[in-house]
Structures are given as C-alpha cells and as structure tokens.
C-alpha cells in the first residue's frame, strides 16, 4: 500500500490541519512506513471474530437526568481566545 500526496492532502483537509508541499512529503514518508508496519494485521484471519468495543464487560449505569452544575457561563467563556460578552467570537461566516 502506498499513501500518495493526493491522499495526504485529502486527510489533511478532513483533519483540518493545513499542510504545505514540504510537510506533505514528510508526512507521506512517515505514514507509509507506519502503514507498512500496520499491514502485519492482514496475516490474521478475523472473519469470525467479534470486534472488541469495550475491555470491561459491564453495562452502563443509569442516573437521573438532573442539572448538577449551574451558572457556569463565566467559567465556560473564561479560556476563550476571543469573546464578546456571552459569546465566542469567530471570523465572519455569513457575507
């Protein structure tokens, strides 16, 4: 298997991480060597194996649906890189 530059650009778009040509080439090299290593899994036949979704066989606990924390607005906004009163501010999205 080989991951080409076109694929790298596609993944970078899905990941919302911008990459320039130089970085894309480096990433292609790295990812190819990692995927060569991952391909080892194809040696195994797994047709009849159930996928493992949780290491601990337990059922999720139910709890009553109550509000336990109140008035967190200031705390929620506190670490925002840019805010205006009660709102997060982002670049304009509507012309």
């Amino acid at each position: 298997m080989s991951i080409d530059l076109k694929t790298i650009k596609h993944i970078s778009k899905l990941s919302r991480i911008s990459v320039d040509e130089k970085k894309a080439e480096k990433l292609a090299g790295d990812l190819n060597s990692i995927f060569d290593f991952i391909e080892k899994l194809n040696e195994l036949k797994t047709d009849n194996v159930e996928p493992l979704t949780s290491v601990v066989e337990t059922t999720l606990k139910l709890r009553s649906d109550e509000v336990k924390s109140k008035n967190l607005r200031d705390q929620v906004i506190k670490n925002s890189p840019k805010e205006n009163e009660d709102y997060f501010v982002v670049p304009k999205v509507i012309e």
Binding site: I8, I11, I17, L27, L41, T46, E50, P51, L52
Partner: peptide, 26 residues
C-alpha cells in the same frame, strides 16, 4: 491525527479500524 483520520475515513474503516478491534479481541 492524520493516521487516525485515515483509518476512520470512508472506504478504509473496515480494513483498518474494524480489523484492529477484532485483533484487539484476540
């Protein structure tokens, strides 16, 4: 992030992520 996005992306999920979950079971 790129590896993870790739193995979860459309068309590759079964070949990688599902396969890995099965091997994890083994």
């Amino acid at each position: 992030i790129m590896i993870g996005t790739y193995v979860l992306s459309s068309g590759y999920y079964d070949a990688y992520y599902l396969k890995a979950q099965k091997v994890r079971k083994l």
